[in-house]
Structure formats: C-alpha cells, structure tokens
Amino acid sequence: MKETLQELKKKIAKRKFYNKIFAFIGFISTTVGIILLAVLFIDLAIDGAQRISYKFFTSFPSRFPEEAGILSAWVGTCLVMIVTAAAAVPLGVGAGIYLEEYAKKNWFTNLIEININNLAGVPSIIYGLLALGLFVYFFNFGESVLTGGLALALLILPIVIMATREAIRAIPNSMREAAYALGATKWQTVKDHIIPYSIGGILTGIIIGMSRAIGETAPIITVGALTFIAFLPPSPIEPEFPFLNFKWLMAPFTVMPIQMFNWVSRPQQAFHLNAAAAGIVLLVMTLLMNALAIYIRYKFRKKIKW
C-alpha cells in the first residue's frame, strides 16, 4: 500500500516534533549548567572583588582580616607546582612514550595500561596517604614543598601518561613507516617525529594535569602543609655563585586552597571575603592555564593536520 503525500507529511511533522522536543531539553540542560556556574562566579566576584588589591598579594596571613593576604599561599602554590611539573613531566611523558613506542604489546603491558587508567580514578587523599608514608616517613623529606610537589606529581602522573599516549596514538602509522623506511632508528623516529607531532597533545595533557593539581587540598593537608604561615621559603635564586639554591625544597609551606579553607572555617564574616578573593585568584590561575592549553592545542593543530 502506498502512502499518500498527506500521510507522509504528517509523519515528517511528527518526527520533526520529537526533534524539537529534544533540542528544547538540551537547551534547558545547557542553560541550567551555565547559569549555575555564572551565579557561582558572580557571587564569588561580588564577595571577593573588594578585597583584591596589590596589598592582598604582598601580605602574609594575619589575625586581622583586613591586613591578611595570600603572599605565602601563592608563592607556596607556585613552588609546589614547579616541583610537581619537574617530577610529573619527565616521568609521565617518558612512560607514555615508552609504553607506546618501545614496550612490546603483551598481557603485562595491558595490565599496566589498565592499572594506569584505574590510578587516574583513585581519590586524591589516597595519594596523600601514599606520599605521607613514602616521602615524609620513608625518605624523610619532611612536611615540605618537595613532599607536597611530589604528592601532586603522583596524583597527575596517570593523567600525563594517558595524555601522552593518546597524543602519540593519533599519529598515523604511515609517519612511522616513512621514517623507518628511510633507515631511521627507533630513537631517531621518536625524537624527529613522534615527539614533535604529539607535543601539542602532550602539553595540553600536562596543563590539564597541572590545573587539577593546583586546586587539590586533600593530599596536601595529608602530607602536613601548614594552614598558617607567615614567612616565605628561602629564595631559589641567589645573588652569588652558584646562583641557585635548593633549600626552598625543604621549607614548610601552604597553598592557595588551604589558605582558603583556613579562612572559610573562621567565624568572622570578613575572613569569608578573603576566602572569596583567594577563590577568584585561584580560579583565574586555573582559567589561565586552561586558556594556555587551548592556545597550544590550536597552535599545533594548525601546523599539523593529518
């Protein structure tokens, strides 16, 4: 039996109706999400903006909310992130390259792969406990910048490894074959092709890992970061030879999220404003890192299109 044109039109109208319903639901969900985020941010901005000033960045925490600042917190965060990057980048990228390009694919490397994926989902406090046992008690690094940085490095290692592997996997096999066919060794192929072609994805992964680390509180508290600290670690740069100084690695520290937590848990309203202001700073730091990740991705995608 053949449909009349009218029947056909009716059916199309019905399908289009369902299509519209779904578009509507999708629109609502998106809007709710965006509005909630915007309200959150605006609320934070309204509370915190009044406290943000030059002095806020250059003052230590204080008993008096108007005088309190985030100097020790942002310096601590920066130093901890340096340690985290210095540990997680070479280890993570190296492991990723090794697993993709060198390791034979067998049950053992499959097992490693599954475990790395699982490690990415382990709650961050577990990494804190691991770091406490390993770096504080076993290696005696103390409750220091070094311990904090390494704890966060452990936390983001799986992220860096997975990002590296994914970036490498996106390289078509024809590139490897082209290099090997010209007589390149494995190392020449890796250094001349694999790393340059995947560097965009790798850097993006590193920054995503770092923006996760910058906001972490639990593992940092677990390894014993201070909540109130009114001095800075020794400067990494010295005016005299050898110009670099590594004493800061062993210094006690605090980081932005802990400073915020400390202020929020005080009864005075004025401290809550400080926390909001610190929240804005932390958010901006994270957004800047994400913007950098997007920029890097854009820049490298433009250069290499398969």
Binding site: E177, A181, A184
Partner: peptide, 18 residues
Amino acid sequence: IEVRMRISMVFQKPNPFP
C-alpha cells in the same frame, strides 16, 4: 636498518612528513 639504507620505499598513499 642496514637493509632500509640500501632499499627505499614509496608507499601507496603519499605520506610526507608534516
């Protein structure tokens, strides 16, 4: 590697390096 130094190959799909 020694073999590939003496015998070159051109593939089915052009595969220049980026």
